[in-house]
Write a protein that binds this DNA or RNA. Structure first.
Lengths: 157, 157
DNA sequence: TATTGTTATACTCTATAACTATA
DNA sequence: TATAGTTATAGAGTATAACAATA
């Protein structure tokens, strides 16, 4: 008579959604959606990132990327430059303001991490999650919750 | 320079979404959606469960519950009976067929659990997740991913 | 001919608000 | 007056398909 709370997969999913939703809520004061946080994070590495690449990396369809970057650009957090190698594409870059806002968001994430568990437990959890993620074949930094899907939660990360 | 994969909260969310999505995919051959699985699970405890109670428990709005139970009833997995104490309400019951299908779904969940990690690691993970869930104040068996939200993934559990 | 960015249209799902019947 | 179930309407969001510019 296994209860749902005895299933690691259920607990994992339950906690994962909870944490994602909580992160989304804490991001609201920054007027930033989890998908945009993902974008800023990916852009922060620099380089000539095309919208196509950005969408492919985060699992967001390219026609949705347009609107999200429209918003980021309108707010001065990112900008479309001319792509040096391909005149069809944009090279999306993070602005200083965008980098600053990303810093705020990361501090929020730090807080969330800190609240999750005590230091020792958190380290142990991180280790186990890494093993499970590798076993599941998950790609680094690719969050399936960001993908468009048929009505995916814009608030859930 | 903390990568996203160094954040337990991100990994938790990433793995949680992945597991939920995978569970949803494996449930498809049974023509059962994760939310319906949640309903069958809750109904399996028996008793006179009203639609209101079911929705409140799973975080699904009552007007959405109607359609989901319509489907379950049409397929002979659940049925609406007269509620003995309140003539406004239905007493939703699981049928034998519904109980059987729930068994199939639980076996699918068992497989997913088994694939997650080796036995020892899985036990350790379960322990840590329990602690984190308690710390976060999560309720037993209440999955925030099932909630309606502004465009919540019907495929993600 | 394929690809990048963009826009428009159709579809799916939820939110809100009503309504009936009971309490 | 409030609540259980139901239905209808409107809204938010995505998928699909087109398009122009460029490869």
């Amino acid at each position: 008579m296994s209860s749902l709370t005895d299933r690691p997969s259920f607990l994992l999913s339950q906690l994962g959604f909870h944490v994602a939703a909580e992160f989304g809520r804490r991001l609201e004061p920054l007027d930033l959606r989890p998908r945009q946080f993902g974008m800023l994070t990916y852009l922060s590495a620099g380089g000539n990132v095309t919208q196509q690449e950005l969408g492919a990396r985060l699992g967001i369809h390219r026609n949705v990327v347009v609107g999200l970057i429209d918003d980021l650009e309108r707010r001065g957090l990112a900008e479309r430059r001319k792509h040096p190698d391909d005149r069809r594409a944009h090279a999306v870059r993070l602005t200083d303001l965008g980098r600053e806002l990303l810093g705020h968001a990361e501090r929020i994430a730090d807080e969330l991490d800190a609240e999750l568990l005590g230091d020792d437990d958190r380290q142990a959890l991180l280790h186990l999650l890494h093993r499970a993620a590798a076993r599941a074949g998950l790609q680094h930094g690719v969050h399936p919750g960001l993908q468009a899907g048929p009505g995916n939660a814009p608030g859930a990360c």
